[in-house]
Design a protein around this nucleic acid. Structure first.
Lengths: 198, 198, 198, 198
DNA sequence: CATGAATGAGGTTTCATTCAT
DNA sequence: GATGAATGAAACCTCATTCAT
């Protein structure tokens, strides 16, 4: 007998559910999925432990919603940017726009990305969600840019361009390597991406 | 009172310790650190649960040794390659050599890399180990290639080149994205890296 | 990250905690601290093993509360008696009152006293609690009896008087030595204590 | 099938056994029986863990021998003193002799006494050994002093006298209570014991 | 709906004892 | 005899989930 999961319709219910997701988001980011327990989530969300199971089937279910939240925050703006590429513009301009957006998104979503990727490794379902999202972004970029008659638009090139952007953004946000000059890195990334498409 | 950790003296003992590390390596790779328990490790290593704690303080301690193992398997060959770059050779030849090695290493170490990176996120100590290793590789490449008078050798360029290689190898090994042609990807990576250094 | 210890708010909760302490009291008394495990405590308290750790950090923490319980049962009546010594009364009467109380307390608290003393030996913290309590009793007796103008009230005399009472009570309760006549012993103890204060 | 326990006949064997007993004595005194494990005993004795079971059936067996050791060190001198009370001497002289001996013995055997008493509580067999020893001392004192025509020699009086001596010695050795003046305490103990026998 | 107390399976860890060398 | 590695039962403890209120 499948347990009845509340589909929140009242305003208060919706907010409770959101508080839990937010708490999950925060704690999974900070401490990781496996090092976070439901009691901590409930406390962070300022609700009782019991009610968590009124809104979610299990802990993994919270994770899924956190992922949705993440997707909303990260991928939606990407797709929005994609949709707004109205006409063929200067390649460099486009690259810079993407870089600015990517950097902004990374700063906000900070640690959650890697944590989610990490959980994905041991969870086929979550892994598929992520791969599929990346696929979509790549392929939609390909489609869009081809439609706008950019040159050399291949799956492989777009894939590499995105990885390069990821390389820069990652460094810019985590600041792991002291010997990297981020402006230089950025210039080089732009240079390389331009090399791909010119 | 710190518990006594066996310093293996007998041959049998050394082998047991290796068996445990190997089992940890296998299971952490396959199922992830948090989904692996010590009983499973003991079983995989075909030893009793008790003896695991004769050689390791706790599960995380096994992880540390698994990391050492990983480092030996992955970074030692990289440093060896570095040392063997005898005189300035053709850039393309060098890139290809590195790609071949990287691909080979990735195939062997399969999933462990991502799992380790993932654990690293929630563990400062392990994270530092990894960042430090990456630093070493980057900086030693810089040093060596500068000494051999290659052009445009900067920290940023080497960092990007390594990320590009990682991009390719990752796809080649995990084969996540069906729409990627790996030969094409490889050619493009080589092209980009050459662009950096010519 | 210190684990959250339940601060009982519901009535049921308070009772559960009391049941666990009571179970600890019973089992520590009967079998000793080290021969009692948490599963036994949970079973005796008719609760699950898990909930024990909802109220206590660990087994030693239960012991501490058992000690508090013991103190309440044993020392509170002693302090009450002390407070009720209204005016200078006959020495012999006072001694007999104390003896009666001590005997009653010992019968109730049965084996726990020695077990607690025994654990105290290998645990500095618990040891300090006990020594401090004994100190308080001794010094408050000294203070009170001096105020009432009893003769020869010194720390040493009160200390010895208490030990003599302990000697008698201990025999009376444990009945270890078959060749001891408890009435005679009692008379001799009263005689000795009187010798001290006359 | 009862395991064969080595009856050491060679000198080296005897010494090994003694080393283990000594190690047990030391560690049981310091940390208690339950907080001492066999590995620690072996290490302290500078022998292998395996050989311990060549000389002892189990851990409790070591404890028994430690008790024997304790008895040898503590009770033998007491019985020797008893045997040496040649003719009726001054009561005060005798009390002082006993006090000096008791104090000396307590200083040497320090913590082991209480630890053994503590273990005795949860172990019937060991408890019996101890009670029996105390009985012997008490009754042999009674017998001897009666034979020498001391006055008022009853089981109860000797029992109390011994407890008083214990009271003093305990304080003198452990120095728990800062407000006790040990010389005064000693004088009072002597006074009380004399009161018993005059 | 909400609370937080309770459950119990399952994880981590210890250690008396045995065994291969 | 001696070593120290190995065993495995049993202890301690955690936490996702359920339940009484």
């Amino acid at each position: 007998m499948q347990k009845e999961i509340r589909q929140p319709v009242q305003q208060r219910s919706i907010e409770t559910k959101r508080k839990i997701i937010k708490a999950g988001y925060t704690l999974f980011s900070k401490n990781g999925f496996f090092k976070t327990n439901t009691a901590q989530i409930a406390k962070e969300a300022q609700v009782s432990t019991g009610i968590v199971y009124g809104y979610f089937n299990d802990k993994k279910d919270i994770l899924k919603e956190v992922i949705n939240e993440y997707i909303t925050q990260v991928y939606d703006p990407v797709f929005a940017l994609l949709d707004n590429i109205g006409k063929k513009e200067d390649v460099e301009k486009l690259i810079k726009d993407v870089l600015i957006l990517a950097e902004k998104l990374h700063k906000n979503s900070s640690d959650i990305h890697r944590e989610l990727e990490s959980v994905a490794q041991s969870d086929e379902e979550i892994n598929k969600t992520f791969v599929s999202l990346q696929d979509q972004v790549t392929l939609r970029f390909v489609e869009k840019l081809k439609a706008l008659n950019y040159k050399n638009i291949t799956n492989e090139n777009i894939h590499l361009a995105m990885n390069l952007i990821e390389s820069y953004v990652h460094e810019a946000v985590y600041d792991k390597h002291l010997y990297i000059n981020y402006d230089k890195l950025k210039q080089n990334v732009i240079f390389l991406i331009k090399s791909l498409f010119i």
